[in-house]
Design a protein around this nucleic acid. Structure first.
Lengths: 194, 194, 194, 194
DNA sequence: CCTTAACCGAGACGGTACGTCGGGTCTTTGA
DNA sequence: TCAAAGACCCGACGTACCGTCTCGGTTAAGG
């Protein structure tokens, strides 16, 4: 009934994921159709529908497989420097046209599919968010962060503005912007007597 | 060549905008087609295409016209209280299923159309963001905000996390969340000797 | 209620008929739309619908007005020569690309509208057919045609094959063809002892 | 590139042709739309466009398939009787409302599409015309027809007037008419000494 | 090694919606 | 006061993809 992963054609799987990313980079979301992916990958449409629920699932798999390593947060003891590193990298990703196109496509699919939204959150973002949260916890243990700071929300305080600016084009996504953002968040969480 | 607004049928215009919002509330973005809007509004498709570029433009017009009054920020002298009011209201909007469906649809269209993105930013969001920014400026003049705080980014620090949580479903959109968010931002901008 | 012919704009009337014939000659029936006629004539569509039922009626009026004079059949006493003259002229009309395009358009409209068919028959064809019939009658009176020949059908025997060949492209429409046709019909109607 | 006939769905093909003829018989050419055919046949529009160029091609296929057997001309030795049989049958076809509606539709399409005109001529009419011509040739060989009679034109002399009368409604399409037509043509081709 | 069953490519299928064109009507505007 | 201009409602156009289905052909597992 349901397909047997053992029989799966690895060549086709790779070709489909690659085709999806290529098409996104070349023509954007508007031209990303299942038919185009199948044609580019040299694959029949049923092969795609056998293994994925739709475009969103393909893009998610492609992204997870192509950019597998979450930024491993350094713990240099200097929280501000460590956050700068990760926020600068994140801002750069959103500023990059190709990566941005992919994220844009994935976000569109996510907005129309709750299931997919959960998977994107858990498989793609959670590791990144958790790593930052862990870094914040270690900083709090070291007395560099107010003991009562709600760390989950602090993480969102770091990443949320980037999404806002990317989504609504309210300003440039540059390094100075990233640094200023980190400074603002640092000011919010530093112990009173800083 | 291009249509003459003077000749426009006001009844049709209203019916189209209303139909779009109704369909969104009832069936969500997936079932929001131009044909469905035309049919519900008792209007021909060409009448829609004569005046709008696509679904996104219709939704934007509908939202702007239906929810015209941006929250008029109070200036009670108590910045924290004033921000709580506006952030609570914003969080409530994103938590509301109907409004959220509309925002979701508009965001999808925005992600696929740069032109539309600019219009959404300028016509829909800018007034709100500017109002908050103005309140922050008056607070800064009153010495309640650090003189070097980058107010544009502070505004995004307030709204960005809400978008993040709404987009990625990383947590509930509740009043306590709103208040905690305001507290974090206040901590980031209060004068050192607060 | 119904339009008053006295008030009719003669300039518009002429422009519409001319535009119809021009468009037919230039682009053929496929591009002959009421909108194109209106635009070419510098006239609004309602002005057309006020005075004509549709494209067919316009073309009929245009043809009747532009080619008003039915071939005046000579009566030289030589029936064969007289018929040759009229049949040659008719064959030449069907062979002419411009006239053929007009006839084609009118025939299409005729096939889809019984009312128009009657008008085309009575206003456009009847004079021609009756003239030939009258010539045949005078020939019969002179003893050149069998007394029992059904003249109405003889007229159709002359013109029918031309329509057949034009409609079904079963052969060229040339002078030799016209002459051979006349000879055949003459053989059918000459008195036995010829 | 072009569709593979081997994969074609025979059930759909039949349903489409049947639907076209039914709609023509019921509502006439004005209501014969591709959408109506698709809907009646329970078929998607693209399935129609995949296999046919337009309405004309469908009707032609339907007619060829539904009325496949050309009247097999008898050769009783009595040419007049044989021609009466075929001309009576032809006149009856044009007089029949359903068949006439089909012919009317096909003629309209034919007038607007040269390609189709050739196909109608070759696939639908040619066999019939050739059969009559063959009968005339055998009669000529038997000395019943003038040796110099242009047989191709004689065939058109038989069928042309029927088209003329049908197209222009110049008279009734009845058996006496058919017989009188045959008599006229016989008079035109019989050897001089009868 | 051979069978056999699953996946594979290919693409036709019934559909839905697209964005456009033209039909015929109705309203506004200007001369 | 009438006609120009053109917006309107409507329906059909021909196309693009959707997701499903039916084909042989190939391939890899299991006997």
């Amino acid at each position: 009934m349901s397909p047997q992963p053992a029989r799966r054609n690895e060549r086709s799987r790779r070709a489909i994921l690659a085709a999806a990313l290529e098409l996104l980079a070349e023509s954007g979301y508007a031209d990303l159709t299942i038919e185009a992916i199948a044609s580019r990958a040299g694959v029949g449409k049923p092969t795609i529908y056998r293994w994925w629920r739709g475009k969103g699932a393909i893009i998610l798999d492609a992204v997870v497989e192509t950019f597998p390593d979450v930024v491993e947060l350094p713990d240099t003891g200097d929280l501000r420097a460590d956050l700068r590193a990760v926020i600068r990298a994140t801002v750069a990703e959103f500023a990059d046209p190709t990566l941005s196109a992919t994220t844009r496509a994935l976000t569109i699919e996510t907005l129309a599919d709750d299931d997919l939204a959960g998977q994107v959150r858990d498989r793609l973002l959670r590791p990144q968010l958790d790593a930052v949260r862990a870094r914040l916890e270690s900083a709090r243990a070291a007395g560099r962060v107010r003991p009562d700071a709600p760390l989950e929300q602090v993480v969102e305080l770091l990443f949320g503005p980037i999404y806002h600016r990317w989504l609504l084009r309210t300003g440039p996504l540059t390094e100075p912007y990233a640094d200023a953002l980190v400074d603002l968040v640092m000011a919010a969480i530093e112990p009173a007597g800083g």
